[in-house]
């Protein structure tokens, strides 16, 4: 059971492309594009948005989160909510379309509820939380140093695997000081091949979390 996503864009190509990108990182999440007007021009269409929302609602009842691009896409999405029988099952995320969609898709793939998926999208462009002061005061319960061996280093897919996998564990984890629950913070490390990642974890699942990262990083995230 996962939250569904609907992408409302002025451009059919942008909506389809964003979905194509996000599906790579969230193969089990239903992500529906609603881009362009009915006749394929630039614009947004209530009918297309309604159709996507209805398809999402039919698929399961875990709720739907909408991501939008420019202003009138937001208005069309809000208008669609006015027509819905149960608007409370649909949340609108205020986030950059592509980055927010990818973060939302990863969160949905990891089993977050609709509020969690919306939050994941909206956290994308928020300044990173203040450095992990909490961690500085208490020693980590588990730690490890792992070298990045995949060619591309810490790019979107590895970051998604890390933050997605950790979202199911009860542990606070940092990677070189970045919050490992945040895909964006991980990507902002800019860690390339050969970088040694220092992982610290605390909480009930601390050991499990470090072992999870050891496995992921050690097998180069399943990529070259």
């Amino acid at each position: 059971m996962t939250v569904n996503l609907v992408v409302v864009s002025h451009s059919e190509k942008i909506a389809d492309g964003a979905v194509e990108l996000a599906v790579q990182m969230a193969p089990d999440v239903l992500i529906l594009p609603a881009g362009g007007t009915d006749d394929g021009r630039i614009g947004t269409s209530l009918e297309r948005v309604m159709a996507a929302l209805e398809q999402a609602a039919d698929a399961n009842s875990d709720g739907t989160v909408i991501l939008t691009d420019l202003g009138s896409a937001v208005m069309t999405a809000e208008s669609a909510l006015e027509f819905l029988a149960d608007p409370s099952s649909v949340l609108l995320a205020d986030a950059p379309l592509v980055e927010g969609l990818v973060a939302a898709a990863v969160a949905a793939q990891a089993g977050a509820d609709s509020a969690g998926v919306k939050e994941a999208a909206e956290a994308v462009y928020r300044p990173p939380a203040a450095p992990q002061h909490a961690h500085q005061h208490r020693p980590p319960e588990a730690a490890g140093d792992f070298e990045l061996i995949n060619q591309a280093g810490m790019h979107a897919r590895p970051a998604a695997k890390i933050s997605g996998g950790l979202s199911g564990m009860d542990a606070e984890v940092t990677v070189n000081g970045a919050d490992a629950a945040s895909m964006t913070e991980l990507m902002m490390l800019g860690a390339g091949k050969g970088t040694v990642l220092h992982v610290e974890a605390s909480g009930p699942d601390a050991v499990k979390a470090v072992e999870y990262l050891r496995g992921l990083i050690g097998t180069s995230f399943g990529e070259p």
Partner: peptide, 20 residues
């Protein structure tokens, strides 16, 4: 409903909401 689906720009949802 028709304006919201066919206009495309911001005027679609705005006039659509007004008429609704």
């Amino acid at each position: 409903m028709t304006l919201m689906s066919k206009v495309g720009g911001a005027a679609g949802p705005l006039y659509g909401t007004a008429f609704l």
